[in-house]
């Protein structure tokens, strides 16, 4: 009896293993990967003013030209702010897939800035679940504009530490939370040396190459109570080698030190600036 049972088992075992007539469905099962890393949470390495969790892959050099024009309230006389443009020219270089460094020169305050960015976690699905992407961003900015009385080297420095936490919720929607600490070496008597803020942002993709972005930094401890929180609205157009980002924002600065703590314009008072970032990638 046991023998018959065993024999039947053996026969059917073989039958079930190899009697599938569709060869494709057999091999297809082997293909489902254990973990799928989520890519393209954002199109660019910049959300609008600040950074996104994205880093470029190894040996990628990105040239970024950013503009924030003058106050739109200047009207036709100021060509809606175009006459008073300030510019940041930047170079980002990806040393590894996870580690990027960059430098930039800003016309506003004649700042030089350098940053390092490290991707700590990458959102993954499948067997190995990681719910969010996590990137650390740290930067130093050095103001070179001549002042009276003259400041020392130390007094011109400001430092930023930031965590970027993002989740791609669907292929169209990504959200980012970005706590940030900015330290100013020298401030006026009534100002705080340390600014703590929480940024929130996101993108909504319309079509394959177009997305709408929003970014807002809320200060918990402000540099100066007369200053404002930075809000920016914009859209990305991805053309392949370039990413065009057009936006409106109340911040004239393009580095964290500037837009987190030193935004002097009120968005809802109509003091907004047009701006854009253009990135060009080179694979070295």
């Amino acid at each position: 009896m046991r023998f018959i049972f065993l024999s039947l088992l053996l026969i059917f075992n073989v039958y079930f293993l190899y009697a599938q007539d569709d060869l494709l469905s057999q091999i297809d099962q082997d293909l489902d990967p254990e973990s799928v890393e989520v890519s393209s949470t954002f199109k660019g390495t910049r959300l609008i003013n600040g950074h996104s969790v994205e880093t470029r892959s190894k040996k990628n050099l990105t040239f970024i030209i950013s503009h924030r024009f003058g106050n739109i309230r200047g009207g036709a006389y100021e060509f809606f702010g175009m006459d008073g443009a300030n510019i940041r020219l930047g170079l980002d270089y990806a040393i590894t897939d996870k580690f990027t460094v960059g430098i930039g020169r800003n016309s506003l305050g004649k700042h030089l800035d350098g940053f390092a960015k490290y991707r700590i976690l990458r959102q993954s699905g499948g067997e190995k679940q990681i719910p969010v992407s996590l990137t650390y961003f740290g930067s130093a900015a050095y103001r070179t504009v001549r002042t009276e009385p003259e400041r020392t080297f130390q007094q011109n420095l400001a430092f930023t530490h930031q965590l970027l936490i993002a989740r791609k919720i669907s292929s169209a929607i990504s959200l980012q939370l970005m706590p940030v600490w900015v330290h100013y070496n020298a401030v006026s008597v009534l100002e705080n040396n340390d600014v703590f803020a929480v940024g929130v942002g996101g993108r909504y993709k319309i079509g394959k190459r177009f997305s709408v972005n929003i970014e807002y930094y809320h200060q918990i401890q402000e540099l100066n109570p007369d200053y404002f929180n930075a809000l920016a609205l914009g859209f990305d157009i991805d053309t392949g080698g370039h990413i065009f980002q057009f936006h409106i924002t109340n911040s004239a600065a393009m580095i964290a030190k500037g837009f987190v703590g030193e935004t002097t314009d009120d968005f809802f008072g109509g003091n907004i600036h047009l701006g854009f970032n253009i990135t060009r990638n080179f694979q070295l």
Binding site: L23, S39, S40, R56, S57, K208, D238, G241
Partner: peptide, 27 residues
């Protein structure tokens, strides 16, 4: 005969091409 492959496994000379391939072309 049967063949199956993941589109994400295609590797390009330039990394951004891979991203654009997956994001913008083959979805």
């Amino acid at each position: 005969v049967a063949v199956s492959m993941l589109m994400k496994d295609f590797e390009f000379e330039k990394s951004l091409m891979k991203e654009h391939f997956n994001e913008n072309y083959v979805e």
